[in-house]
Amino acid sequence: MINPYIKRAFSDLKRNLMTQMMTTAVVALSVLIFIFFYFIYLNLQHVAEIFGAELGPVVFLKKDVPAGRIPDIYQKLIKLPGVEAVNYVSPEDAMNRLKTFLKDEKDVLEGVDPDFLPPSFELKITPAFRDIGNISSMAGRIDKWPEVYSVRYGQEWIGGLEAFIRVFRIIVVISAFFLLLTAAFVVSSTIRLALYARKEEIEILHLVGATRMFIQTPFIIQAFSQGLVGSSMAAGIVFFCYLYIKNIVAQFTLLGGIGLYFLPWPHIVSIIAISACVCAVWTAFVIRKSLVQ
């Protein structure tokens, strides 16, 4: 019995093409706004991950730590949970880095003893451990070691970014809920209008012995296809915007190679499927209330 339902659904779509197209456009717009928010959220999260990885904790040692203690401290650090790699930076290495950073103004360091810079260890954190809470707790523990002068990990910057992303995630979730609800409401309103416009046809269908399923299934198929087409269009639009912005971002060397990332395909498929299902289920609910035998 599926084929006749689909056939009826699509012949009805053809008969009321303009209304159906407008509904699909509203669905597309609602889902577009959500996907765009989600796209920004995912890219911000990605930026935070990159900075989190690059701004790993740096452990500054006291200047009076004997050179013989360095390997022991190295071993203690590498054995800490969440630490992927440890890099020792001697005062000489630090001085060389400073000179490179100063470029043409490196002359200001002329005659300065490299020992004025403390020796340090740069820690690389495993991706699974890359959380502001974990790093902060680890830094707190290392800071208590007698040889350690201080531990820095760009806590204010990353903490702020992560807090912003957390708030943004809540906004994305809430907006998803309301936008999907809007899409479903618009689709069901169109269906309600269609039911009203086709009151006589439905009355005739009842007269000739049509079951509730026979009457409502084409409407549900229409709503499902509107959700499917609308959300696919939205995903397509965001994808083309992404391709366009990606090229622009690539031209900015200042961004240090931070690229843009599109939503993972399983997420796109899920968004499209959820949109289609929400439209269909909401319509079924509306029809159930509207159809009277």
Partner: peptide, 20 residues
């Protein structure tokens, strides 16, 4: 749920035809 099946036993003709 039985009503549609009962109605299939009855054909109805109206003065105003009720055609689509």
């Amino acid at each position: 749920s039985q009503l549609p099946y009962l109605r299939r036993k009855i054909g109805v003709v109206f003065q105003d035809f009720k055609l689509l």
